[in-house]
Computed example of a mutant assay.
Amino acid sequence: MEKYILLLSCMLCGAIFLGLGAYSVKKKTPMNFWSGVEVPSESISDIPAYNRAVGRLWGGYSAVWFISGLAALWRPVEATILMCVLGAVGAVVLVLVYKRIEKKYRVK
């Protein structure tokens, strides 16, 4: 039973991050990355490209959760460790990659 709870939890998290990515691609104004911090439209040189890059970023992070969820069907303990390690490392990678995206599309 635990493996199905872990599967459902991971899939739900993955779906949320994937949804964030899809929403980002469709958004007409710059997508916010940090909670509570709005990105002004005049500070981004190419808003559609910026939003696509942020969308890919969130989509890539969702893969961590989907992979961990699927791994839970066969090895729940290892999947939990995978989820914790990749989730934590992935969060750091998210910030680093976002900084590169922001630098690339920021009006100079």
Rank of each mutant, 00 (worst) to 15 (best):
M31W: 04
V54L: 14
R106W: 10
L70D: 01
I5K: 09
M83P: 06
G14V: 00
E42Y: 15
L18T: 04
L20M: 03
V107A: 09
M83A: 13
I16V: 15
Y61H: 07
A63L: 10
V95M: 08
G14F: 01
G55W: 00
L18A: 00
W65D: 00
M83Q: 13
L12A: 13
M83I: 09
T29K: 15
Y50A: 02
K3V: 06
R75Y: 10
A53T: 11
W74N: 15
L73R: 03
N51K: 08
L7S: 06
C84H: 02
Y105K: 11
F33S: 10
I67V: 13
A22I: 03
V107P: 00
I101Y: 07
G14Y: 00
S45N: 14
S9K: 14
V77H: 04
Y105I: 01
G19S: 10
Y61N: 04
P30N: 11
E2G: 13
I101A: 03
K26E: 10
V64G: 05
F66V: 12
F17Y: 07
A53M: 05
G60F: 01
L12G: 05
E78P: 13
E2L: 15
W74V: 12
A49I: 01
C10E: 04
L73P: 13
L82E: 02
I44Y: 12
L73I: 11
R100Q: 15
P40E: 11
Y98M: 11
L18N: 04
L70N: 06
L18E: 02
M83E: 00
A72C: 09
A22L: 14
V93E: 04
S35H: 15
M83G: 08
F66L: 03
V77A: 13
V64N: 08
A53H: 04
A71G: 11
M31C: 06
